[in-house]
Design a protein around this nucleic acid. Structure first.
Lengths: 159, 159
DNA sequence: TTGAGTATGTGATAGTATAACGTACCGCAT
DNA sequence: ATGCGGTACGTTATACTATCACATACTCAA
């Protein structure tokens, strides 16, 4: 598992590369990577944090890119639908995908102290839940896995 | 894993026993199992389904047990706090606990066709997520695990 | 019986999300 | 170049989810 969210890294590059990757992918697929969608992705990439739709909307409003909730929700829906962002159900908020392009089953580690969110990959077919579900004949199509706790940095700071 | 939610069973007993168990537990611990709280638990036990707070509130209103949102939310908070019910984040709704009393890390299997929800037990220390988190030094305090898909009954019906 | 803690009643409001409708733009086949 | 279908955007309104704040009432034990 990677832990981009917790480790130090070149964050400027993180944003540029993230946007470039999505831009390329959209070109390939013929999806429209419009200014609003691009800006929302940038906002999400700015911190490894989940942002609420209305936080996003406030920023868009300041920048004259839209002022009503559907503007933000549509852009977020687009990003989530194509795997460029994820919704954190626990927080009713959204975060940029750390591994865009790969079709995956993400899991999240949410620090309750600094709100940083790290994304991990899970293979639902492995592990106990997948095995149990298979035994029962339950077909898992999608899973929400969100762990809340203390990240290493905040744990050290507390000690 | 048990699959009470999907298997045929004596559902009347299911409700009676559920309420009796919680009743006993509250007596032991000195918690007040008030009429509203009892009724909300009964409503949740009526189906192995998640109910929204406002569905609950509607029922309470019909029965003269309360008419404003805080009435429902307070009762739900009580039940969730003591492990008698769980919140399904994916659905913004609530479900009676299938294993009341035991302190546990629940996981849910949600059928997208019939809305039945089955509760499984997970030990977060085991499995990939727990292991990865431990490697990173992330301390998991609570986890939301909600799988969505098709239950055996609906899968068979579809075929 | 009185006081602390807990539970409820109620009105107001905050926060999250979508419906519904019209307009504008883009690529393409005619 | 014209018309057409698909996609995206603008805007108003509304639905759904959750909490705040304050007054009142109940419960238990000192």
């Amino acid at each position: 598992m990677e832990a981009t969210g917790f480790a130090r890294h070149d964050h400027g590059a993180c944003i540029r590369e993230g946007v470039a990757l999505v831009d390329a992918r959209c070109r390939e697929e013929g999806w429209q990577f419009t200014p609003v969608r691009r800006r929302v992705l940038e906002l999400l990439l700015e911190g490894h944090r989940a942002m609420g739709a209305y936080d996003i909307l406030d920023r868009l409003r300041e920048e004259g890119l839209g002022s009503q909730p559907p503007v933000a929700y549509r852009a977020l829906d687009f990003l989530v639908k194509h795997g460029f962002a994820h919704k954190i159900e626990r927080l009713n908020s959204f975060i940029a995908c750390a591994h865009p392009g790969e079709h995956h089953a993400p899991a999240f580690l949410i620090c309750r102290s600094c709100d940083t969110v790290a994304e991990a990959e899970l293979d639902m077919r492995e592990g106990r839940l997948g095995a149990s579900a298979a035994d029962l004949g339950f077909v898992i199509e999608r899973a929400v896995v969100e762990a809340e706790g203390l990240c290493p940095n905040c744990r050290d700071a507390a000690a």
